[in-house]
């Protein structure tokens, strides 16, 4: 068990080291590979964050350009996906600030008049309905429409990305207690909405 963990950790570190060196060189083929590897995950995260397909597509491109520009800052002790999602999140917040200037605190509040990270009109049926496919896509889309973006964000990081709570706290730049409370509330709301829809 110990040996297997050591082997796994050294493999992860070696890969992170290769990514760090490639990013410092601005190696185009490495960027191509990273885009391929993380395409669905990044897009899904941005979609959950913004609630808008168009905004998610724009931010997807901008995130990779930013990864290229800031690649020299990436350190191999970080997990690449944590760094990637942090960049994507900062870009999304910058994007909202440009559109509707307000304080960062207001952007990060999960409820209230200035709903955070709310780029699209998620009360309309188009935002998630057209974005998702799958067995229960329609009911999930309806439930997600009613969740605050900050809840959708932590739900996707925890249950799609299987991130540790500490990693999520790092990505969303919030205390662990805030992440947990958002997860519990988000899960409860999701469950209630899906129950109502199926009833």
């Amino acid at each position: 068990m110990g040996l297997a963990t050591c082997w796994f950790m050294s493999t992860v570190e070696r890969e992170a080291g290769e990514v760090a060196r490639g990013l410092r060189r601005r190696d185009p083929s490495l960027i191509d590979d990273l885009i391929q590897q993380y395409q669905y995950r990044l897009f899904r995260y941005l979609l959950m964050l913004t609630g808008s397909r168009e905004e998610a597509e724009d931010l997807f491109q901008e995130t990779w350009i930013r990864v290229l520009e800031k690649g020299h800052q990436y350190q191999q002790r970080w997990k690449f996906e944590t760094w990637l999602f942090t960049i994507a999140r900062h870009l999304a917040i910058d994007f909202i600030r440009r559109r509707q200037p307000q304080s960062l605190d207001a952007l990060l509040q999960p409820t209230g008049a200035n709903r955070p990270l709310e780029l699209a009109d998620t009360t309309s049926s188009s935002a998630f309905d057209q974005a998702f496919q799958g067995e229960e896509a329609a009911s999930v889309a309806t439930a997600l429409r009613h969740l605050p973006p900050s809840y959708r964000e932590v739900l996707t990081l925890r249950f799609h990305e299987d991130m540790e709570l500490e990693e999520i706290a790092r990505v969303v730049d919030s205390p662990l207690s805030t992440v947990k409370s958002r997860l519990y509330r988000g899960l409860a709301m999701l469950r209630e909405w899906l129950k109502d829809i199926s009833a």
Binding site: Q36, F43, Q133, R191
Partner: peptide, 19 residues
């Protein structure tokens, strides 16, 4: 469990040209 299964089964439609 059903709520989480539904969440995990929701796959975003992805435009290959975006990549």
């Amino acid at each position: 469990e059903r709520a989480l299964r539904a969440l995990r089964s929701a796959v975003p439609r992805f435009d290959v040209t975006l990549v």
